[in-house]
Simulated scan of single mutants.
Amino acid sequence: MLNKLREQTVFKGNWLLSLLVSVGVWQCSVPVMGQMLLPYTPQLNSEQLEQQGLEVAEEAAQLIRFQQHDLALSRAKLAVQLAPNKYQPWFILGTLYIIKQELEPGVEALEKALVLEPEEVGIKFTLGNAYFQQGKYQQAATALEEGLEIKADVPSAQFDLGNAYFKLGRMAEAIAVYQKAVAQQEEFWPAVNNIGLIKYEQGNISSAIEHWQKALEIDEEQAEPILALGVALYIQGQKEEGLKLGEAALELDSNYGEIQHLKDNLWGEKLIKDTQTFFTTPQMQAILAQLEKDS
Score class of each variant (00 low, 15 high):
E173S: 09
N194F: 05
P190I: 07
E187T: 13
F188W: 10
P190M: 05
S206I: 12
Y200F: 11
Q185L: 13
G196E: 05
A183P: 06
Y200W: 04
K199S: 15
N204E: 11
G203M: 09
A174V: 08
A174D: 04
G203E: 11
Q184G: 13
A172W: 02
G203T: 11
A174H: 02
E186K: 09
P190D: 08
Y178G: 04
Y200H: 05
I205F: 00
K180S: 11
S206M: 11
K199Q: 15
E186V: 14
G203P: 06
P190E: 06
Q179S: 11
Q185H: 10
Y200T: 10
K199H: 15
Q184E: 14
I198T: 05
G196L: 08
W189D: 10
L197T: 02
G169S: 08
E186H: 12
A183I: 10
A172D: 13
A176T: 13
N193G: 15
V177L: 04
L197C: 08
G196W: 01
V182M: 08
V182R: 00
F188C: 12
Y178V: 03
A183H: 07
A183Q: 12
K199W: 15
Q202T: 09
I198C: 06
E186C: 12
Q179G: 09
I195Y: 07
V177C: 06
Q184F: 14
P190L: 04
V192L: 03
R170K: 13
E186M: 12
G169A: 08
R170W: 12
Q184A: 13
A181N: 04
I175L: 02
Q179K: 07
Y178R: 00
S206Q: 14
S206T: 15
I175Y: 00
G196P: 09
N194P: 06
Q184R: 02
A174F: 02
Q185K: 12
Q202N: 06
E201P: 05
Y178P: 01
N193P: 12
F188I: 13
N193I: 12
E187D: 15
Y200Q: 03
G169R: 00
R170N: 15
G203L: 10
N204Q: 10
R170L: 14
Q185A: 14
Q202K: 01
A183K: 07
V192H: 01
E201G: 13
Q179N: 09
G169H: 03
K180Q: 13
L197W: 00
L197P: 00
A181D: 06
A174G: 08
G203D: 11
A172Y: 02
F188G: 11
A183N: 10
Y200G: 03
A183T: 14
G203F: 07
G196H: 01
A191V: 06
Q185V: 12
A181M: 05
E186F: 11
K180C: 07
